[in-house]
Every structure is written in structure tokens, then in C-alpha cells.
Design a protein around this nucleic acid. Sequence first.
DNA 1: AATAATATATATCATTATGATATATGACCC
DNA 2: GGGTCATATATCATAATGATATATATTATT
Lengths: 188, 188
Amino acid sequence: MGKAKPTKYAILSLLSLEPMSGYDMKKLIDVSLVHFWSESYGQLYPTLRALESEKLVTSRRERGSGKPDRIVYTITRKGRWELKNWLRQPADIPRVRYELLLKLFVGSMLPVESNAEQIRLQRRELAHGLSKFRLYRKMVMEDGVDPMHRVYFLLTIRHGEMVARARIRWCDEALKILGEVAKESPDE
Amino acid sequence: MGKAKPTKYAILSLLSLEPMSGYDMKKLIDVSLVHFWSESYGQLYPTLRALESEKLVTSRRERGSGKPDRIVYTITRKGRWELKNWLRQPADIPRVRYELLLKLFVGSMLPVESNAEQIRLQRRELAHGLSKFRLYRKMVMEDGVDPMHRVYFLLTIRHGEMVARARIRWCDEALKILGEVAKESPDE
DNA sequence: AATAATATATATCATTATGATATATGACCC
DNA sequence: GGGTCATATATCATAATGATATATATTATT
């Protein structure tokens, strides 16, 4: 039934903040929203054209002084209206594919140490991601961000932090458990 | 470069436990692994045929007494070998698309109460998911599960619990913050 | 006894998404 | 002069989803 079309609404969401190009969106997502969203160019550019033909956004070509030309998109009144409609629908539960846990699920095929190393790797990446949230906070607090938007942005950052911290705690717990298992049966 | 093909390895992982049909896999994932994995029939059945032509699995048709016929797949030695190879590669970081947080990111377009309601809905689903982990634990402890497999399965369950608890804590914190915001500016 | 709903089981397809690559411009550096 | 980096749009093969189709048998409802 209802096709979700998350990319469509992700684009409209970003354009509700300010006009920007597809390239801008990709950068913004990869730098500041990566803890809860992702988009690929292959989905971004075709969807932008589709949104324009739906009259949900307009575009203007900007001469790139030095850099290549940019196509800057602006959300229309109709676009804002459709975005609000979507915002009011219950958010659907994300399907997950957490490769590390799939590998651990059949971890007994490999030596304990191999699985422990996977967890250590994961822990390192989580700790690195965690350090970025401090930067995000600074960014949000700095310039003239709308105070209500600031509150909501901070909520997404807080979510990222809390989940990352929980995962790090899990890594530590898991490594401890695997350490004990290794002591009991060092051959496995 | 390296195509990940997670479905391929998810199938090999399940078959490393015991022979089963595509239907069995879908059920097993939806019931017991849903906190870290998902698959669709549209990906499962074609991939199973591809794996057979790669000689990583074999199949036999089982007459369904009453029920329709089933095609039961068994992993081959070559399949086990390829699975182990994949298990040794570092697990890649999952890209997320957490719709609730995208909606909150532009939450200032709607009244505070609308966003609070979204969070309350999410909290309910998280609490419901949390209650299932108790069942999983029982399942794992019951019958003759291999002790090492049990350890690893319990780790994935523990991860699900810890992340779900962290998210519930975030919901409560977020609702508190939005409550205060609503008091300060009840019009917004 | 007829009808509806549910569970089992495989299969296909349009739509959506990813990851990689192609193309092009100018800045900066050695 | 060559190499790399950042900017910017575009496309394509592959992968994944969600929906639907088909078929059989059991159980529940009217």
C-alpha cells in the first residue's frame, strides 16, 4: 500500500531549513545527520527532479564562480504542506541490519579471539563517533539557529550519544564475557 | 569495489545451524533475530537459487504432508568455508534511517504536542519490544542448544536490550524537555 | 455445510536504495 | 607539468523492499 518514499521527505525536510543543492544535502547529511540518516547521490538527484515536476520544489541554476554550476532548490508552499502532512503520520519502525551481531550469532564457528577482535574494532568506531557529538553541540549552539530548531536538533544529538554509549557499554560487557569463556575453554 | 551481499551471508549463517527452507529462514529472522536483522522473500528466494548454482548450498524437495511442498537447503563444505572467510572480515558500520529523528529534526514546523506524541508512540513500541527479550532468553536456555552458540545468541539479545533501554531513557528525557519547552512557550 | 480466516510455502515484480563510476571545473601544491 | 583535492551533477548495475499472486490444508465461524 502506502509507499513511504523517505528520500522525498528527507529532501523536503532539509529544504524547509533553507534552499540548497543536492550536493549540499549530501554534505549536510554525511556530516551532521549521519547518526540518524543517510542518502546516496543516486537517489538524491533523480528524486530532486521528480519533486520539481511535482511542484513541491523549484530550482534555479547558479553560475559557479570558479566552481562548477550549482542547481539550488527551494521548497514551495505545496511542498511545505506535504511535508507537514507526512510529519503528522506515525514514524515507522526502522528495519535493522547490524552485521556485527549477525557475525556474532554464528560466532561459534570461529575462535573466541576472532569475535573479541570484531567487538574491539566496533568499540573503537563507536568511541570515535561519540567524540563527534561534542562538535555537533558546538555547531548547534554557535550561530543564529532558530531556538526551537536548536531544541530538536539537540534531541537528535542526545539520542545518538545515548545509543552510542549503550553500545560501548555492551562491547565492554561482551568482551568480559568472552574473556571468561576463553579461560574456561581456551581451545575453542 | 567489494559487493557486500549481506543476504548471501545471512542465509549461509542460518544454514550453518541446520538445514531449512526459505520460509523457515524468514520466520526465524522475523521472530528471533528481528532486533538485529531483516530479510524479504523477494531477496531470499532468488538468492537461495543463486547460492545453489554457486554450489554453496544443496537443495532437496520435501513432500508436504498436508502442507505445500518445501525446498530444504543444506550448506556445503564450500559454503561453510566462504562463510568463515566472511566472518573474519571486519563488520561494516550499518547506515541508519531513523525516521522518528528525521521528523524531530524539523519538529519546529509542528506544535510541540505533535512531536511529544510521536515520542510517546515510539516509547510504547520500544517497551513492547523489550518484553520480547525475556521470551528469547527462555528459548535460548531451553532445549539442547550448543553451549557456545548459546553464549553468542545471548550476546545479541543483551545488545538488543541495552539499546532498547537506552532509547526508552532517551524518550523519557526528551518528553521532559519538550514538557518544559511547552510551559515556556505554550503557543508553539 | 458453506464460508472465512489463518498458516504454510514458493515466486515475481515495480519501486526504492546503494555504491561505484563517469564527467567536468578550478584551486592548490610540489 | 602533473597530482590531488573539493565542488557539482549524473547514471547504472546490483541489491532490497513491500506488495501481490498462487496454491494447499486446517481451523473457526455463521
